[in-house]
Nucleic acid binder design. Sequence first.
DNA 1: ATACTCCCCTGAGAGC
DNA 2: TGCTCTCAGGGGAGTA
Length: 274
Amino acid sequence: MPEKPEVITVARHLEGQLLHQKILECHVFWDSIIAKPSVSCFCQKIVGEEILSITTRGKFLVFELTHMILLIHLRMEGKFFFRKKGDPLQKHEHVEFILQDDVSLRFHDVRKFGRMYLLPKDTAYLEKPLSELGYEYTDPKLNEDYLLRRFQNKKIPIKSVLLDQRILCGIGNIYDDEILFLSRIHPNQEACSLTKKDCSHIIQYTKEVLDHAILLGGTTIRSFTSSEGVHGLFQNELLVHGKEVCPVCSSKIIKIKVQGRGTYFCPNCQKRKK
DNA sequence: ATACTCCCCTGAGAGC
DNA sequence: TGCTCTCAGGGGAGTA
């Protein structure tokens, strides 16, 4: 499940391959991947555009094109492969961009949950989905008072609130568990009950965990390989997610469901406060 | 405004 | 072996 570190890894890899490439053709084989505009409009408008940069916002890949912004959300299993124009379509390849020199960039997604948006440059950041996103974890405006304020009316578990991209964007299910473990907060703790100190820990460990993961190229878990030839190493660094024994106190790690998400925590290090 | 539920998809794994 | 059933998971839509 690509989270911020994996999305950054993919963006860097793609930018290295695609900078200043021009999109010559676009073919869509599974319509619902294209969220906006219609498939025909999407293909028509993207042809002729040049790729000027590839960055990220939250868990979106942001392709800056000549006149447009192309947003791609990989969701759980979206990835890219480079092939040659005319190569037979492989299973689960749903969108194809033909570039210069007969390069065929294929979007591959087993679950078909990935989404693409093509938006005009001048309004892309003012409309959904980008307009809904909260702060990046690197944003200096992300501080204890901001989190305290955003948490104050939330009676749902902190684990779920950290997954809410409208507050702090880029965290997914795996890093959420890691951040709460390091912050010594029970995943089911009501967000509104957190203290300023808790918020301070969350900010500190979000930065540490994500920075470290980005340095190592993200986490490669199960189906996720960020892109052809790209494999992260952070899975070796995970402390609690998917683990059996707490690396701090040797207690048995417990797996529970928090609002439908598989959640790992240490019952000794992450005691629930009331 | 918050907080639910349902839905999208497929492959892996369990159970028989 | 081969079938059926259940489940995971990010986020958008719809509803209370």
